[in-house]
Design a protein around this nucleic acid. Structure first.
Length: 275
DNA sequence: ATGGCCCGTAATACGGGA
């Protein structure tokens, strides 16, 4: 089962590319079972549910005009949809979680159905600059995410957290580690929060496998950033302990970044077996 | 030395992204 994430930077603009990419994966023999999308930049009433349904995907979404907005697509229906972090007052649409397979939130045990998979798609705050109000919001949001996720993982042992984290793990994720040292997305404060998520029992799917050097998921539109591979690895897929042994591959797909009018982010996917 | 792109909203600029 292939599970992917992609920050599309406006679903209005990028919808044809998303549909093309899904169709290309399917015709290559490895259809995408689940896709998390970020930065929809559209209100709920503008979400192109019919287009995705036509392509064979169920969808759940949490939209917002102009900014943010997240969605999950899957070839089977979702249960137990959660929008944003419970108890964290937030005008910004940044998180959507849902269950695939039998709804495991009602305490039902066993049964003939396959174990449920809990999918958490997130668009982490950017933070703009250290010390700014937006950075303080980023840290508050990260703490609320960690607290909620600790509980969520107890309820759902088979859990993925994927999306645009807006944080690099370490200098290997940064095209210019010296020039960007302690700047936004690269600061030790942010990285400590990312490690705190791993400490809950999550694993960076990308690093479970050998990867090309200088593997990034985002490149600035300016200064030929993509052509010069001046990028950051800020989009991630984290797997819970129970899912880690099922992973057989994880790759960044740079090809959509070469499209005309591309998103500045590339999609990233993980292959899980035995689900 | 500086900013150089793209998006949406609004308006022929600006905030935000990263």
């Amino acid at each position: 089962m292939k599970i992917a994430t992609w920050n599309v930077n406006s679903l209005t603009v990028r919808l044809p590319q998303v549909l093309d990419w899904l169709a290309a994966q399917a015709s290559a023999g490895a259809p995408v079972e689940v896709l998390a999308l970020q930065e929809l930049k559209l209100s709920d009433d503008k979400f192109p549910a019919a287009a995705f349904e036509q392509a064979g995907y169920h969808a759940v979404w949490h939209g917002q005009k102009t900014y943010n907005g997240v969605a999950l697509l899957a070839r089977s229906p979702f249960n137990a949809v959660q929008r944003n972090l419970p108890g964290f007052e937030d005008e910004q649409a940044r998180l959507i979680a849902a269950t695939l397979g039998a709804d495991d939130t009602q305490g039902s045990e066993g049964g003939a159905s396959a174990p449920a998979l809990r999918v958490v798609g997130a668009y982490f705050p950017n933070g703009q600059a250290l010390g700014s109000d937006k950075f303080a919001y980023k840290l508050r949001w990260l703490e609320a995410l960690r607290a909620w996720l600790a509980d969520e993982m107890r309820r759902h042992p088979r859990l993925l957290l994927l999306g645009d984290f807006n944080i690099t793990f370490d200098d290997a994720d940064v095209w210019d580690p010296e020039g960007l040292r302690e700047s936004i997305h690269c600061s030790s404060v942010e990285r400590a929060q990312l490690q705190a998520l791993l400490a809950l029992g999550l694993h960076d799917a990308h690093r479970l496998f050998a990867q090309p050097p200088k593997s990034y998921t985002w490149w600035d539109y300016r200064q030929l950033g993509f052509q010069k591979n001046r990028g950051l690895r800020i989009d991630h897929i984290l797997l819970s302990d129970a899912l880690r042994p099922l992973a057989t591959a994880c790759q960044i797909d740079r090809s959509p970044r070469k499209n005309p009018q591309p998103s500045d982010h590339a999609p990233l996917w993980v292959q899980l077996q035995g689900l």
